[in-house]
Every structure is written in C-alpha cells, then in structure tokens.
Amino acid sequence: MSLRYRLAFYLFGLTIGIVFVYFFMTKKAEASGVTFCYLPNCRVLKDLRSKPLKIGDEATKRFDEKWVTLDDIKMSLEHGDVIFSESNKPFEDGKLYIVEGKTIANQDITIEMISYENKVILKDIKKE
C-alpha cells in the first residue's frame, strides 16, 4: 500500500475519532453540568460563583437603593470581566476581586468581592 493511501486512511480515521470524541464529550458535559473553564477570567468567575455568597454592609445599602438586584450580581458573575490589575490582592485574610458587569437594565456596574477559602463576601457595588 502506498504512502498516499496510508495517509488517506489515517486522516479518515482521525477525523471520525475527533467527531466521535467531540460528540460524546459535549453530551456528557451537558448532562452532568460540567463546564470547561480554561481561561483565567472564566476560572475566577466560576470560583466566585461556587462559594456561598454573604452580603456586606455597603452592598446592602446599594440593594436598598433599588437600582441593582441580586439577579444583576449573578448575571455579572456569569458574563462579567475580572479586572486582574486590581484583583487577587490580599484583603482581610482573603483576596479582593473586582468584576465589571452589567445590570438587567444594561447599566455598567463594578462589583467588589472578597474571596475566602469557603465563602465570598459581596463588599460593594458601584455604578459606572
């Protein structure tokens, strides 16, 4: 068998294998709720979402002003951007993270969160 036919069979089998793995891995991930976060922004947001959320005094005041809701915070933790130049700094035995996001009314907000080993505290919410 010539090299050309060997290469054709190899590429054909490789293509079938890639499609097979992709199809079954995505179905398995969707069924079990697994997400693949490889980028730093995704990993930090996933870590902040996975811990129990406590609301600080300043954030409680912002919620009382009625321009932001907890749904806005959850949406920002799904689709927001972590400002790494101002984040991951030691703060009160935890790490301070700054997340930029949007409210449901499409208003820009900045969220300050303190991440501890077993909880996250919502420190403050600011309008942009």
Rank of each mutant, 00 (worst) to 15 (best):
T69S: 15
V44G: 05
V34P: 01
N106Y: 08
V120C: 08
T69H: 03
V82M: 08
A29T: 12
I111Y: 03
E100T: 04
M113F: 00
D47W: 06
K119I: 13
E58N: 11
I114T: 13
Y116Q: 01
P52R: 06
I111W: 05
S85V: 08
D93K: 15
D108I: 13
E65S: 15
K28P: 01
S2F: 01
S115M: 14
F20K: 09
C37G: 10
E78M: 15
V21N: 01
R6C: 04
S87R: 01
M1L: 12
L45F: 00
D57G: 00
E86S: 15
L122W: 02
K28V: 08
L77W: 03
R49W: 01
Y10E: 00
K119A: 11
I55N: 01
S32R: 14
K51T: 05
S32W: 08
Y97R: 03
I114V: 10
K66P: 05
S115L: 14
M25V: 11
K119V: 10
L11R: 05
A29I: 09
I121L: 07
L14C: 09
M75A: 11
T15L: 15
F63H: 13
A59R: 05
F24G: 04
L45D: 00
L3E: 05
A105D: 11
S76H: 00
K74A: 12
D64L: 15
S85P: 04
I83Y: 12
E86N: 12
E92D: 07
H79N: 13
W67E: 07
S76R: 02
L77H: 01
L122R: 02
E65G: 15
